[in-house]
């Protein structure tokens, strides 16, 4: 296997089946126990109805999660699943994916799990580029511990642990992932099943680590956090659709380069079509993707949605397998020879 044959083929080594699969095949027998109205239900249904189209053998699919509301997800998928410990899912999935290239490995995590306690594992997974799909459910709050602010909560968030407002600046998960030079970075939203599934499709077929931020509503502790993006009156103006090769626009706004080399959002009618930035998700330089990730400041006036970056570079598991093949080119190791290596002497 060489890098050229696997690039763009995240599932190339995963065995396929001709048997027809439906959403029902991917539902486990466990009762789903999220709060009524939680955005997680929509994401679960979107994933369960999407995965059959991949045509993979169900037993070669694994969902690994950390801790938090979203991390219950694997229990509801009728695949192999591992509900692990807080923040560590990327590390556990790394060992699994690195040693089993025949598996399609998905990490389910949340904003606290991935960006707070597990931040270190996330950035290293992204830089290593192991063949994983990381779905980061971002609801900008701690749900399972009952409502403390999270590392993506806006400054000044009033919660149980911050009665006078939170003080620390939040992470922008897309900026963080692009900064870690992730090879695939995307954002989607729980309420838009079609868009969510189109992003999952691209993530699954990308060879390497795919990070998908999913805006997810917590209707108990942070309801309507993404309401502007769902409101039929506002959403088409706010949402900047990222589609490779297409101009980056919403219904009323457009993105163009500033003379200083940055990006700005302007009234769409005020600029000629030729000045609107055309999205290039495959550009090797991450700086435009990073600039795009900053456009949602100040909060949610305009929000890019879609694949920010999708570039090809060798995945860690693939390079590791190649080193093993190279080391075994002259034959597999012989234990007797290993033990007798170096200086030996005989007595008797």
């Amino acid at each position: 296997m060489s890098e050229t044959t696997l690039n763009g083929r995240g599932l190339a080594l995963v065995p396929r089946t001709d048997a027809k699969q439906t959403m029902k095949d991917y539902k486990s027998d466990q009762e789903v126990r999220w709060c009524p109205g939680c955005g997680d239900y929509a994401i679960l249904a979107a994933v369960q109805s999407f995965v059959p189209e991949l045509g993979l053998r169900r037993e070669n699919m694994v969902f690994v999660s950390g801790i938090g509301c979203s991390s219950r997800f694997p229990y509801y998928m009728n695949t192999y699943g591992f509900h692990s410990i807080h923040g560590r899912a990327p590390a556990i999935a790394t060992g699994l994916a690195a040693s089993r290239p025949d598996l399609s490995v998905w990490v389910i995590t949340g904003d606290g799990d991935a960006l707070s306690i597990g931040g270190n594992h996330l950035i290293h997974a992204l830089r290593r580029n192991i063949n994983l799909n990381i779905l980061l459910f971002n609801n900008r709050i701690y749900g399972l511990t009952k409502g403390q602010y999270s590392p993506t909560s806006e400054v000044g968030k009033i919660t149980k642990s911050t009665p006078m407002g939170s003080l620390d600046k939040p992470f922008n998960p897309i900026s963080l992932a692009v900064g870690a030079e992730a090879s695939f970075v995307a954002r989607t939203i729980d309420s838009d099943r079609k868009h969510l599934q189109s992003v999952l499709r691209e993530a699954a077929t990308h060879r390497g680590t795919s990070l998908v931020e999913i805006y997810q509503n917590c209707n108990i502790y942070n309801d309507n956090a993404f309401e502007q993006l769902k409101d039929p009156e506002l959403r088409d103006d706010i949402t900047l659709r990222l589609e490779h090769g297409q101009p980056i626009v919403s219904a009323s706004k457009a993105v163009r380069r500033t003379p200083g080399g940055g990006l700005e959002v302007v009234d769409r009618a005020s600029v000629p079509e030729s000045e609107i930035l055309v999205h290039d998700a495959h550009h090797p330089d991450p700086s435009v993707a990073f600039a795009l990730s900053r456009l949602d400041e100040p909060a949610f006036e305009h929000v890019p949605i879609g694949v920010f970056r999708s570039v090809e570079r060798p995945s860690y598991d693939q390079l590791m397998s190649e080193q093993l093949e190279q080391a075994q080119a002259g034959g597999r190791g012989d234990l007797h020879k290993l033990l007798h290596g170096g200086d030996t002497w005989r007595i008797g």
């Binding site: 591992f82 999935a93 790394t94 060992g95 994916a97 690195a98 089993r100 594992h121």
Partner: peptide, 16 residues
């Protein structure tokens, strides 16, 4: 990247 990831990856591999 750290001690925790070392054992985590080993456990993930064991699951596999």
């Amino acid at each position: 990247e750290d001690e925790i990831a070392g054992v985590g990856a080993a456990l993930g591999a064991a699951f596999g």
